[in-house]
């Protein structure tokens, strides 16, 4: 009953499979700049947009610390709370790097999330259509894209 929705339809099946196996409560797939690609479990656009922005900011700031330490690129972070855990990862796809933000409860674990996340990234790579040629990004396009994304993510 909890909805899984995607702006990019090819991400839907891999995300649904990942959520089913990992028992994730919330899952959010975004670009590294925080543009939402797919989501599971969110009921409010405001929450999705906040989570996407925060996830992208965390990944960006962690990447910067990592760069200062001259370590390899940011891959993942996790936090275990009392009743929920958070997992944030950056991974590559033929469409470019993406971020995944996953929230799980006591019926799952970081081990299960990581295990099925590996499969998820492989499934995404397999499902990804050929890359499209890059287009210039205009402010008007961005606004329209944002509204279209929200419509796709919440079925309006």
């Amino acid at each position: 009953m909890t909805q899984t929705r995607a702006v990019e339809p090819w991400t839907l099946d891999p995300l649904q499979h990942f959520v089913g196996e990992s028992a994730a409560r919330l899952a959010l797939l975004t670009t590294t700049s925080g543009q939402v690609i797919a989501q599971h479990g969110f009921t409010r656009a405001v929450d999705v947009m906040s989570a996407a922005a925060l996830g992208a900011a965390i990944a960006a700031s962690t990447s910067e610390i990592i760069r200062m330490l001259q370590e390899p690129a940011f891959r993942m972070l996790s936090h275990q709370g009392q009743s929920h855990g958070i997992f944030l990862a950056r991974f590559g796809t033929p469409r470019g790097p993406m971020l995944a933000l996953v929230v799980y409860g006591g019926d799952s674990s970081i081990g299960l999330v990581q295990l099925f996340f590996e499969q998820f990234t492989r499934d995404l790579a397999a499902a990804c259509p050929a890359p499209e040629p890059a287009k210039p990004v205009l402010a008007a396009d961005f606004e329209r894209d944002l509204h279209e994304s929200l419509a796709a993510l919440f079925g309006r």
Binding site: Q80, S108, S109, I110, G111, L112, Q114, L115, E118
Partner: peptide
């Protein structure tokens, strides 16, 4: 790690997937 399902130490034959074993056994 029982709650997390992550590997702490392992001694595995080739072909055994350590991360899968850890996560699934803990669950």
């Amino acid at each position: 790690a029982g709650d997390d399902g992550l590997v702490v130490a392992e001694s595995l034959m080739e072909g055994v997937r350590g991360n899968a074993l850890a996560a699934l056994a803990a669950s």
